[in-house]
């Protein structure tokens, strides 16, 4: 039997959907018992959410004021302190999990499986390498704790419906004085979150300015979509970094992805491979984005977007 511990991701007393995706991945492992650990300064509201996830049987809370900061240097030792008895320790492939889990793995003296996209067996998985241009089947040693991150775009959240027990536990932890959180500048938006939105409209360098990028925001609002961007658009300052989609940005899997004025560089395509339907609007008929698009339209975006707005609102 596998005993799996999932490290919950959360902010502002709310559980991040990435946790429910880790549970979905863990429940593909045969004969698994799934626990979630909430390392937080105020664990109970988060624990209640985690306890209601299908397949989770136990939620463990480590409550400590020090945990207002979710820095890896603070969280990792607490996870390690309670790792004994677990065959698997999973976290999400979000920036939270990618920062934390390798630190956990190293403290346990093991390597990590990054970005699980498919479970083949309790110690056998598929994961993407070379920006998703190759998929590799990996096997982790069965006699060691298995630390992994779950590629969240590959999984759908498990639904609510569970009723896990919630237990508080104490672990010895010290605040590492050497790392201090100064400030978190979170982008605030009423739009659907890029990582969980069913629809995403994204713009590239072709938009030309921050002002003109508003066209993308307006179209997104009409569609009830989240907004994404290429690295070129972020670097040029049209939008903040958290909107970047791709190898070094977010990997997303919306039902609909509308790429406007985006060439389709490999590093960008990595981020949208799992999208349901990809629409591409580009004035260059040879743009590589058309090779992956399900629906392509060649033309000038500055003419097409207003027409599309009119057609959608009409």
């Amino acid at each position: 039997m596998s005993k799996i511990l999932i490290v919950a991701e959360h902010a502002d007393d709310v559980l991040n959907p990435s946790t429910a995706k880790c549970v979905a991945c863990a429940s593909e492992i045969p004969d698994a018992e799934i626990h979630v650990v909430v390392v937080a300064a105020n664990a109970s509201p988060i624990a209640a959410e985690a306890a209601s996830l299908t397949s989770v049987t136990q939620v463990l809370c480590i409550d400590n004021p020090l945990n207002v900061s979710q820095l890896a240097a603070i969280v990792a030792p607490q996870v390690v302190a309670m790792a004994e008895g677990y065959s698997h320790i999973f976290g999400p492939s979000t920036t939270f999990g990618r920062d934390l889990m390798p630190r956990v793995a190293a403290l346990l003296g093991v390597n990590q499986v990054s970005d699980i996209m498919e479970v083949l067996g309790s110690h056998s998985f598929k994961r993407p390498v070379y920006a998703g241009n190759a998929i590799v089947t990996v096997e982790a040693p069965a006699n060691l704790p298995l630390v992994a991150t779950v590629r969240v775009a590959s999984y759908r959240s498990v639904p609510d419906g569970g009723n896990a027990t919630i237990n508080s536990i104490e672990v010895e932890s010290q605040s590492p004085e050497h790392t201090r959180l100064i400030e978190l500048q979170a982008g605030k938006s009423d739009r659907p979150d890029l990582q969980t939105a069913a629809k995403v409209v994204a713009g590239g360098r072709a938009l030309g300015s921050e002002e003109k990028f508003q066209l993308i925001f307006q179209l997104a609002d009409t569609l009830g979509a989240g907004v994404g961007a290429t690295r070129a658009a972020v670097d040029a300052g049209y939008v903040p970094n958290e909107l970047q989609v791709g190898q070094t940005g977010k990997i997303i899997a919306p039902e609909l992805y509308v790429a406007i004025g985006i060439s389709g560089a490999i590093q960008h395509l990595t981020g949208i491979k799992d999208a349901g339907t990809i629409v591409a609007i580009n004035k260059d008929p040879d743009a590589p984005i058309f090779e992956v698009a399900d629906i392509g339209l060649v033309g000038d975006l500055f003419a097409i977007i207003p027409e599309l707005q009119a057609a959608l609102s009409g």
Binding site: V110, N111, Q112, V113, S124, P128, V129, G132, N133, A134, I135, V136, T137, V138, E139, A140, P141, L144, K273, I278, F290, V292, A293, D294, I295, G296, L297, V298
Partner: peptide
Amino acid sequence: VAISQVKFEPPTERAKGVM
């Protein structure tokens, strides 16, 4: 102890789209 890489394969291709 390394994680062993057993087999590489190309990613699944997306079906051809329409213009």
